[in-house]
């Protein structure tokens, strides 16, 4: 009741009428019995964002892009251990656990990988939350556990029709050693396994050191010079549609 009263003084129970009417600074006529008439529920306000991810690499397809809105938490923090949801995405390109994270209030995923030089546009919408944070995550699939994206970008200042863009860096989930072995890389360069629950690396997220490749002396690597990358690896454009 208290929560309703501060929004509308018309919607009050007779027993509380005297107190509430006085508190609202309106009529103090205690003899009047107010009519209990709930106001129509306010129309929900939809906040909708279009997120375009452009793949800037030479030979690293990006796994289907996860786009999530949340008010709390992070998808990752540099220097800290990756969540299992991030590990699953960074090692295997599977974003399902990121989309299902407890703090996620709205989510959307690209339908297919984004090839080098290509882009994908994903729309995500949320009702009645003006100050959501945007996070984006996608794997560089011809790697052990490289990913790119954005963590917790504050969208509160973005007006309808306005755009914001940035270049994103390559991160290393730190959950799988960068062996570059065929068996450990899920992308088309290798066709190996993606996710492996065992953690055999430093176990903290950091900037990615890049891939070595067999063309640069790592003879057991399945990768070639085509798979090398440098920062930035993606351009991300966010437009508020409504």
């Amino acid at each position: 009741m208290i929560m309703v009263m501060h929004k509308s003084c018309r919607f009050v129970l007779p027993a509380l009428a005297a107190f509430v009417l006085a508190a609202c600074g309106g009529s103090s006529n205690n003899d009047h019995t107010p009519v209990v008439q709930p106001p129509p529920p306010p129309a929900p306000v939809t906040y909708s964002y279009e997120v375009t991810v452009v793949n800037l690499t030479n030979g690293q397809p990006l796994s289907p892009v996860a786009v999530v809105l949340h008010q709390e938490g992070h998808l990752w923090t540099v220097g800290e251990s990756a969540s299992e949801a991030l590990e699953l995405m960074a090692e295997g390109g599977d974003n399902s656990e990121i989309l299902a994270m407890e703090n996620v209030m709205a989510s959307a995923s690209g339908e297919a990988p984004v090839g080098p030089g290509h882009s994908d546009t994903i729309t995500v919408s949320i009702e009645d939350v003006a100050d959501a944070n945007l996070s984006v995550a996608t794997m560089l699939v011809n790697t052990n556990d490289a990913f790119t994206g954005l963590d917790s970008v504050d969208l509160a200042e973005l007006e309808v029709g306005a755009s914001w863009s940035t270049m994103s860096m390559a991160y290393d989930a730190g959950t799988e050693a960068n062996s570059e072995l065929q068996s450990t890389i899920p992308g088309p360069a290798a066709g190996g396994n993606g996710f492996d629950a065992a953690r055999d690396d430093v176990d903290f997220v950091a900037m990615h050191p890049g891939v070595v490749t067999k063309d640069d002396g790592l003879m057991e690597s399945v990768l070639t010079s085509h798979h090398r990358f440098d920062n930035p690896v993606a351009k991300i454009i966010v437009t508020r549609m409504q």
């Binding site: 062996s179 570059e180 990615h208 890049g210 640069d216 002396g217 790592l218 920062n231």
Partner: peptide
Amino acid sequence: PGNIGDDMIDGGKSDVDSRVHRWLNPV
């Protein structure tokens, strides 16, 4: 220009590990 490194603990061209001691900017 970055470290080159190699994957040989003993010998090779370099004493740093190409899979561990490279970096990309920013650092």
